[in-house]
Computed example of a mutant assay.
Amino acid sequence: MTTGLDRFTVKVNDARITCDCSGAAYWHAEKLLVVADLHLEKSSCFARHGQLLPPYDSERTLKRLKTVVEKYQPQTIIALGDSFHDNQASLQLSEKNRQLLEDIITHHEMIWIAGNHDDEKTEFTGQWTHEIRIGSLLFRHEPLAGTQKGEIAGHLHPALRISRRGMSVRRFCFASDGNRMILPAFGAYAGGLDLSHKAFYNIFDKSALIACLLGKNTIYPIQKRSFFSQ
């Protein structure tokens, strides 16, 4: 395993995957960038239901995506589902944000994994599928229980709280046990589910679990500790 200031590389089913501090993962051997749970237009969805959020989530998310795409220059981008917060979200994008997204996907092979929020196709170009296997890895939205070697998924929005010297901090994170990986949510307004939650009980080999916590410009890998409440 190697580490740098803004990234940390782990092996997932023999594939070397770089966890970037942005929340995106990069598979250098395949020139493949992976992001999960963009939840574009979450704010407009909430507004339609009477709950007002600052309407800046899509712009922040897409600008960060553009930055990480420019950083790694991938050939292919996989979005692991829930890219749009609901089936009206793509229609709610402002012209500016629509152009941001178009600029990203026009110059790359785009693979959209259908999630539970966005299970219908949008007008944006790219391949839509429920899962796709590339080499030793299988990309899907929701992780399946039990041993799933090579699975790369999103959906659960992993996060971890750590405490030191009486202080506590909570960060979104990548989670992997070497067999599979779950990515953090990339969306600006997406929440997080702590790794101690029962949803993770049948997902990982706890003894091999690594969490890569996202800092502002740094990623913090944490190993050899218990993430799960007894």
Rank of each mutant, 00 (worst) to 15 (best):
T67R: 08
T67K: 13
T67D: 05
V68G: 03
V69Q: 02
V69I: 15
V69P: 01
E70K: 07
E70S: 09
E70N: 05
K71W: 07
Y72A: 01
P74I: 01
P74W: 03
Q75E: 15
T76Q: 08
I77P: 00
I77V: 06
I78R: 00
I78L: 00
A79Q: 04
A79M: 14
A79W: 01
L80G: 05
L80C: 02
L80P: 01
G81F: 01
D82S: 01
D82H: 02
D82M: 00
F84N: 01
H85P: 10
H85M: 07
N87K: 12
N87E: 12
N87D: 15
N87Q: 09
N87H: 14
Q88V: 00
S90A: 07
L91R: 15
L91V: 08
Q92P: 03
Q92F: 13
L93W: 07
S94Y: 15
S94R: 14
E95V: 15
E95R: 10
E95K: 13
K96W: 08
R98E: 08
R98Q: 14
Q99F: 08
Q99M: 08
Q99H: 14
L100Y: 15
L101R: 04
E102L: 14
E102Y: 14
E102W: 15
D103G: 02
D103M: 13
I104M: 04
I104E: 08
I104F: 06
I105H: 02
I105E: 12
I105R: 11
T106V: 06
H107P: 08
H107S: 12
H107Y: 14
H107L: 09
H108F: 09
E109Q: 11
E109P: 08
M110G: 04
M110E: 06
M110T: 08
M110I: 10
I111K: 02
W112E: 10
W112K: 12
W112H: 05
I113N: 02
I113R: 02
G115C: 06
G115T: 00
N116L: 13
N116D: 15
N116H: 09
N116C: 13
N116K: 12
D118V: 08
D118T: 11
D119E: 14
E120A: 09
E120W: 00
E120V: 13
K121L: 14
K121W: 06
E123M: 10
F124A: 09
F124S: 02
T125D: 01
T125Y: 04
T125G: 11
W128K: 02
H130F: 03
E131R: 01
E131F: 08
E131H: 10
E131N: 11
I132S: 00
I132K: 05
R133M: 11
R133C: 13
I134N: 00
I134R: 12
G135L: 06
G135R: 07
S136L: 11
L137Q: 05
F139Y: 02
F139I: 01
F139T: 00
E142H: 12
E142T: 10
P143W: 11
L144S: 14
A145Y: 08
G146P: 03
T147F: 13
T147Y: 13
Q148R: 07
K149P: 06
K149I: 10
G150K: 03
G150Q: 03
G150L: 07
I152L: 04
A153W: 00
